[in-house]
Amino acid sequence: MTLVRLGYVAMSVELKNSSPSQTMTYTQFENYNNHEAAVRKLERIALSNLDNCLRLLKHSVAHDVTFFRLSSKLVPLATHEELKGWNYLEPLKGKLAEIGEFIHKHDMRVDFHPDHFVLLNSPKKNVLTDSLKTLKLHLQLLRGMSINHTHRCVMHIGGSYKDKESALERFIENWSYVPQMIQQTIMLENDDKTFHLNDTLYLCEKLGIPCVFDYHHHLANHEDENWEKEWERVVQTWAESPLPVKMHISSPKSESSFRSHADHIDTDMFLTFLKEIAGSVPQIDCMIEAKQKDHALFQLMKNLKQREDIEIVNNSSFILKHSKWV
């Protein structure tokens, strides 16, 4: 049997005024007449984001959700070149520690998905340098929460730069410039336009990185439609991880907007995937990437509770009664 645990991404549509991604642009920062006053404003925004992050975690636990993606925008302008002397962690220490204590108390799995501009296969040195700064920020936030940093940042491979094979090899070359502690945080997922599952597995197996299988992305972009043939390879990339296998689940918005995420999860589509992998792993954590965030999770669980082939564990977890992989 396989335990399936559901999570959702960063924000709630049900918990009002709870954004953990409030921000300030550098233009707004420059409009302040006093530099120190502008920095203090940034710190207040960051603390407000962390307050809302803790509210979201409490909201999640109240609904039995123990898998959650943290916002990568908790600290605005933290890596901006013009603020490189700003010790942004100092005023956040207490709140980060409080969040970490809550996460540990409830045995939650949390991770990040750094923004699309974080590119480890870029041919431009400055882009790679900026990407490493952003990944270091994520590592420092995890440390501030006293969370084991291993496999906490899921990323796409990057751009093709009009030569996909060279872009794959450049990822390997640039990997040598990534500090080991940052390397340890990273997971890779297949994307919906360029790097399909086999590309992702090539890098994951070569570099020892866990592969986060995105089922929707695979349907939109694949070399071989039959992902099942590669599932054992996906599982093996997690062999040395302290965490269960992770995947992403979303549904197409429409046939004409197939790559876009729908508001909710198509239950039948999800179960089509799960029935193929049931019994292959003891647990799989499924991150829901739907526009309706937590409501999409709650609706999915409501739908699953109507089925006889599902054993409900709690409001965010269930077991498939039958196993194809036995």
Rank of each mutant, 00 (worst) to 15 (best):
S131A: 13
L132K: 07
L132N: 07
T134A: 06
L135T: 00
L135K: 02
L135D: 00
K136P: 00
K136V: 02
H138C: 01
H138R: 11
H138E: 03
L139H: 07
L139C: 05
L139D: 00
Q140T: 04
Q140Y: 08
L141Y: 03
L141P: 01
L141W: 01
L141S: 02
L142E: 02
L142T: 07
L142V: 05
R143A: 07
R143F: 02
R143C: 03
G144L: 06
G144H: 07
G144W: 09
G144N: 08
G144C: 08
M145P: 00
M145V: 04
S146E: 15
N148K: 07
N148Y: 06
H149T: 05
H151A: 12
H151P: 00
R152C: 07
C153S: 14
C153A: 13
C153D: 11
V154K: 06
V154G: 01
M155T: 03
H156Y: 09
H156R: 09
H156S: 05
G158T: 08
G159P: 02
G159F: 03
G159M: 13
G159N: 12
S160V: 06
Y161T: 05
Y161D: 09
Y161P: 02
D163E: 09
D163T: 01
E165P: 00
E165S: 09
E165Y: 11
E165C: 01
E165N: 13
S166G: 04
A167E: 04
A167K: 01
E169K: 02
E169C: 00
E169D: 15
R170M: 13
R170W: 11
R170A: 09
F171E: 14
I172C: 08
I172Y: 07
I172E: 15
E173L: 04
E173M: 04
E173I: 11
W175S: 05
W175V: 12
S176W: 06
S176V: 09
S176A: 14
S176H: 14
S176Q: 15
Y177W: 14
Y177D: 14
Q180E: 15
M181C: 06
M181E: 15
I182C: 02
I182E: 09
I182L: 14
Q183Y: 12
Q183L: 10
Q183S: 06
Q183M: 10
Q184L: 14
Q184N: 15
T185A: 05
T185H: 07
T185I: 07
T185E: 08
M187G: 02
M187V: 10
L188V: 12
L188S: 03
L188I: 11
